[in-house]
């Protein structure tokens, strides 16, 4: 297993489309719920422990070789917002492209054939990790970290938040990301034996409502 491969996959500049998504932060900023570093931290923490953990479990399970179709259906059931399903599939499709170009793999080719318009991004992330020779913990970490770093980067652009403050938020969440990654790997191992029903289903109501509100705006900076 190559530690450097993890850095490639986790790099915010990995060209898989993430830069155009705020992870719900744009809606929360417009609604006045994110105004500073403290509220950004609370937002990221809430996201980390809800949709973030679910995505990490899916990614880790995919990295362990669980059937992508089943994981994709499980992700659909855990993503009631159609706007978020569209965003997840769009990002999945972009990641499929980037990962296939970076780490050619028959599994990724098969995924692209099966989901020409994209599978849920965490499913693709797990398979990308496999293709890169990485494991379930790496997939979980990548998923969790981009789940909080995306909103933090977006809020720097949206609010003009001091980038040092935004980075400080990510550093303060590190212990929680570690714990969530351990949980995700444990859950993913159970998915291998017990099926996708054991995936968590934690949700954050305002992420979903906000995503739908955001999708209806005529003018916005971020795709989601």
């Amino acid at each position: 297993m190559s530690r450097a491969a993890l850095l490639v996959l986790a790099d915010g500049r990995f060209p898989a489309g993430g830069h155009a998504h705020s992870g719900g932060a744009e809606a929360a900023v417009r609604a006045g719920r994110i105004t500073d570093a403290a509220s950004l931290e609370a937002f990221c923490r809430g996201r980390l422990h809800t949709s973030g953990v679910v995505a990490a479990c899916v990614a880790a399970a995919a990295a362990l070789g669980v059937d992508p179709g089943e994981l994709d259906r499980a992700a659909d059931a855990r993503t009631p917002s159609p706007a978020l399903r569209v965003a997840a599939r769009r990002l999945g499709r972009q990641l499929t492209r980037a990962a296939r170009a970076t780490w050619p793999s028959s599994e990724l080719d098969a995924l692209a054939s099966r989901f020409p318009k994209g599978a849920h991004q965490p499913v693709v992330l797990g398979l990308a990790a496999r293709a890169a020779g990485l494991g379930a913990p790496d997939a979980a970490y990548c998923s969790l970290y981009e789940g909080v770093s995306g909103p933090a980067t977006a809020v720097v652009r949206l609010l003009g938040l001091d980038p040092f403050d935004a980075t400080g938020v990510l550093a303060r969440l590190a212990d929680e990301v570690d714990r969530a990654a351990r949980e995700a790997v444990g859950t993913a191992e159970r998915v291998v034996t017990d099926g996708v029903g054991v995936l968590p289903a934690r949700s954050a109501p305002l992420l979903e409502i906000g995503a739908e509100a955001h999708a209806a705006w005529p003018v916005r900076l971020f795709a989601s």
């Binding site: 509220s39 609370a42 923490r45 809430g46 996201r47 809800t50 954050a204 305002l206």
Partner: peptide, 17 residues
């Protein structure tokens, strides 16, 4: 699943929850 109140994972009452 929605978890809230004491003991719920962090951020449940924050801007995302």
């Amino acid at each position: 699943e929605l978890a809230c109140g004491p003991g719920a994972p962090g951020g449940w009452d924050g801007p995302a929850g």
